[in-house]
Write a protein that binds this DNA or RNA. Structure first.
Lengths: 244, 244
DNA sequence: AAGTGGTCTAGACCACCGG
DNA sequence: CGGTGGTCTAGACCACTTA
């Protein structure tokens, strides 16, 4: 392989980088087959083992999946809900039920100091706020606010969001940006009034504890893209994370 | 390498398995150096590349760490707190402060149906309950109950727990068992009275929401070992998880 | 300088999948 | 059957640490 990128990067890392760029450019959609290891090796002038190492790391990163005897394929865009599933508390081996997403609306606001810092924006930078409701067997269980830098996603159209599979799918389709969840925070809070209303928590029993989730997402190069805040009702359900 | 274990396992997986067994047996303590790749290759009759693949997977699993030019070392036992750190809500890049663990006591009880199933025990199987308090800058922030199958850990001594670095460290030192966190659940709950007392939540303001964490841990072969329940106060702190 | 892990190559064989 | 990914080998060179 010709030494085209930064010299101090190992070859397999350069291959990985190149493939990620091509994937971002939309060369392969979800479930499209990539060239075989040998074709890539010829094309890029590297050995098959080097190509394999790059592909393996992309599989680990969740960007590709492989099937013995068939080929290597582009993985679908991750959903807005994230890796964790909703399960009945205490049952770790339950099969997760499907969550249904409902787009509530898009609005504009200015970044607070915390959020501006996390997203590496100037103070009061304009943001898009995308609000979604999650239902489980019809009942609302979570409320999402996704905050995106407005300048990066200038031209975002609410209709795109209403008719797509979620924020991440829209960013991928309309802006060619692949999102990666960087870190998440959990804490317990009393459900604020506005969110309680949207989640259908009625009556004077306003003393409902909610699981509050914060998420920071970035593109494949690590540039922050999204600050997400979620209120989850966990009376009957719990957020379940499986480890390596 | 002689075909001694199950035939359908690839060689590198057998090497991995063997090294895990030796590690469990206490052959290498934390930060002890393992033999070099070439020494292992000679000893086990595999090639250096195969040994490397096994070692790499053990590094990914957190059992080993490697330093270029120096060697391969046994990783220290993970702490009881887990992977997630406590940070100020909304600040993802903060440096996590140290948590101080305090052993409160050990008692016995019988497994509920849920717990018996998760730990693959019969109903009402005897359990050890190990209670620990976590402090952050002196103030209590979390309360842990670790539930272990009493028969597996027959002879467990409370003094071991009081003077060790935690439950996992004790299991490793006294029983040669390496613990691996399988999955965790989060939900929001109002803090029950007993836990509120132990966490120093005083007065009539009993309406404190708490982050409730459930954890299922296992040994390296996947056999369930521990059910842990934790109540976290998250008024000023949040549970932060970083992703791959 | 010697020893270690990290990268890279070339070639081989196997297991699996599809037509 | 051919093509694919999965495993394994042997050998080479580099980068880093230690002495």
């Amino acid at each position: 392989m010709t030494a085209n990128t930064l010299k101090r990067q190992p070859l397999y890392a350069q291959v990985k980088q190149l493939l990620m760029q091509r994937m971002s450019g939309g060369e392969w959609q979800a479930h499209d087959a990539l060239p075989s290891e040998w074709e890539l090796a010829d094309e890029l002038g590297a050995s098959q083992g080097t190509i394999r190492k790059a592909l393996s790391e992309l599989v680990d990163a969740g960007l590709l999946y492989r099937q013995q005897g068939r080929g290597t394929y582009a993985a679908p865009v991750p959903g807005d809900w994230g890796e964790a599933s909703l399960l009945t508390p205490g049952l770790f081996f339950e099969r997760p039920d499907e969550l249904v997403r409902e787009f509530l609306g898009m609005s504009r606001l200015n970044a607070s100091e915390d959020i501006a810092e996390a997203l590496q924006l100037r103070r009061l930078a304009p943001l898009l706020r995308i609000r979604q409701l999650w239902r489980w067997h019809g009942a609302p269980v979570a409320l999402d606010d996704a905050l995106l830098p407005a300048e990066t996603f200038d031209g975002m159209d609410a209709r795109w969001l209403r008719n797509s599979a979620g924020v991440y799918a829209t960013l991928q389709q309309r802006f060619g940006v692949r999102v990666r969840v960087m870190c998440e925070q959990f804490r317990a809070e009393m459900l604020p009034r506005e969110e309680a209303g949207l989640l259908g928590v009625t009556g004077m029993v306003a003393d409902v504890p909610a699981l509050c989730l914060l998420r920071l997402s970035a593109d494949m190069d690590g540039r922050p893209l999204e600050w997400r805040q979620r209120y989850c009702l966990t009376h009957q359900l719990a957020y379940t994370v499986k480890h390596g």
